[in-house]
């Protein structure tokens, strides 16, 4: 096998579980999940451009319980990926590398993304008069 020209991530099976590695894997998992969400966003835009029937079909999916569940999951993934992405950008400029800070910012990301998801849905549903 030809090696990829950059350091690869450690093998998951032999790596001890800890907050830092779980958050790192979650960053990737939410990124992949959001990729599928992007397909649905493009579907939504295309449906809005295409026809009333296509738009009704997309709207029907979003309003269904499955659609709402997907939206909830994607919003949680988006908030997590956003906050943890900012954490990664801070590391890229050399900030927050001390082990204590890494754990503290990690927990801040977990709690922050949960809070943002809840607040967004409570405010969103309230604005629509459903809560």
């Amino acid at each position: 096998m030809t090696p990829v020209e950059r350091p690869l991530s450690p093998h998951l099976q032999i790596y001890k579980w800890q907050l830092t590695s779980v958050l790192s894997i979650t960053h990737r998992a939410t990124g992949v999940a959001l990729s599928f969400g992007t397909v649905f966003l493009v579907w939504f835009l295309a449906a809005a451009a295409w026809s009333d029937g296509a738009f009704a079909l997309a709207q029907g999916f979003w309003s269904s319980w499955l659609g709402q569940l997907c939206l909830f999951g994607w919003s949680a993934a988006l908030f997590y990926h956003l906050l943890n992405g900012i954490r990664h950008l801070a590391w890229d400029i050399g900030l927050g590398f001390e082990l204590k800070t890494v754990y503290r910012s990690g927990w801040a990301v977990v709690i922050g993304s949960l809070l943002l998801t809840l607040v967004a849905w409570i405010v969103g549903l309230h604005l629509r008069g459903q809560l």
Binding site: V39, L41, V42, L45, A46, A48, A49
Partner: peptide, 15 residues
């Protein structure tokens, strides 16, 4: 996906 999205936005914008 980029082409579909841009075409859709253009259609919405001009249509």
């Amino acid at each position: 996906l980029a082409i579909i999205a841009l075409a859709a936005l253009a259609a919405i914008g001009f249509g």
